[in-house]
Simulated scan of single mutants.
Amino acid sequence: MGGYENGDSPAAVAGEDGVVLGVDGGTTNTVCVCLPAAMPPPESPAAVPILARAVAGCSNRNSVGESTALETLEQVMTQALTMANTDRSAVRAVCLAVSGVNHPSDQQRMLEWIGSLFPGNAKFYVENDAVAALASGTMGKLHGCVLIAGTGSIAYGVTEDGKVARAAGAGPVLGDWGSGYGIAAQALTAVIKAHDGRGPQTSLTGDILEKLELSSPDEIIGWTYADPSWARIAALVPVVVSSAEDGDEVANKILHDSVQELADTVIAVVRRLRLCGEDEKDKFPLVLVGGVLEGNKKWDISGEVIKCISKVFPGTVPIWPEVCMFVTMPF
């Protein structure tokens, strides 16, 4: 849920009541905001008095390893506190919403680690980033479904009585199809297959070679495995979208298949929780987050996903958050 730069925050001053930290940890980047602990409930996202905002790299432990992920989290929190002219002793609460936190044991390890960094009277919350993404679209109310499609993908839902369900979010090896990584990996595979004569010719070949400044599809193999980080691969999504907009059949098939994968991910969660009611016609909020779902002009991925879901659940109410999770999570 990026798009931020360090220091990009409105003027505000930390008070004697201390501060709270909210961290949105993703596979592409990690964002931390520092907020006054005495802040009243905001009437709108624009009313939140952000003291400081800091940005760092990937903090998904499944992508970069636990040690590097924790280093990134500590770095971004320290940076936010420094920018707010305060320190760890002023922290009253920390909310970590991090991709890759998939099991209670993951939460417990993170809670023990974060507790070693800050005062003993501080409150700590650790969740998967999908929980925070849902809250970001509902101003803190955990009800409905969220679809994240960035470097990875996940659908996460919560009923009004607290039942939860998720689908996907298992990483590229186990199939985050429809994610940025999934789209780009299929495009790279299509280029190799076309080069081998095992697949149709595609303009993706020339477009990707130009983007990567390579001269032959043979070089793609070395480029891919030189640094197979998920975000690096996923960064090729705009090339795939551009090729599809120019009419390439292979690129269009990749995007259509990805749309269906994302829609099926949401449908699975909504059905499991019966968010749509017994007759599958009740209204429910669907929060959409992530770079794959954002603003393509001609090839509107999020629009196509919503069409697929709405055919099954006509009560789908799509929401695009105005603000990232850390403003709306209940500290």
Rank of each mutant, 00 (worst) to 15 (best):
residue 30 T to R: 01
residue 76 V to E: 03
residue 84 A to L: 11
residue 58 C to M: 02
residue 42 P to C: 14
residue 48 V to D: 09
residue 61 R to C: 09
residue 24 D to E: 15
residue 44 S to V: 12
residue 34 C to L: 05
residue 15 G to Y: 01
residue 18 G to V: 02
residue 29 N to W: 13
residue 68 T to P: 02
residue 53 R to Q: 11
residue 40 P to C: 04
residue 28 T to L: 02
residue 18 G to M: 03
residue 47 A to R: 01
residue 49 P to T: 10
residue 34 C to D: 07
residue 66 E to M: 00
residue 63 S to F: 07
residue 52 A to M: 10
residue 74 E to H: 11
residue 28 T to C: 06
residue 36 P to F: 05
residue 26 G to C: 00
residue 77 M to Y: 03
residue 66 E to L: 06
residue 49 P to K: 09
residue 78 T to M: 13
residue 75 Q to M: 10
residue 39 M to C: 09
residue 53 R to I: 14
residue 84 A to G: 12
residue 50 I to T: 15
residue 66 E to D: 07
residue 16 E to W: 00
residue 81 L to A: 08
residue 38 A to C: 12
residue 69 A to P: 07
residue 19 V to C: 02
residue 17 D to Q: 08
residue 40 P to I: 03
residue 46 A to R: 13
residue 60 N to R: 05
residue 80 A to N: 10
residue 62 N to H: 13
residue 56 A to R: 07
residue 66 E to N: 00
residue 43 E to I: 00
residue 67 S to W: 06
residue 14 A to F: 10
residue 35 L to T: 00
residue 34 C to I: 04
residue 69 A to L: 08
residue 76 V to P: 04
residue 63 S to G: 04
residue 38 A to S: 14
residue 79 Q to F: 03
residue 85 N to G: 04
residue 29 N to K: 15
residue 39 M to Y: 05
residue 31 V to Q: 08
residue 57 G to F: 06
residue 20 V to Y: 02
residue 23 V to I: 15
residue 52 A to Y: 06
residue 29 N to M: 15
residue 63 S to Y: 04
residue 35 L to E: 02
residue 43 E to T: 05
residue 72 T to I: 11
residue 26 G to T: 01
residue 15 G to N: 03
residue 62 N to L: 13
residue 76 V to D: 02
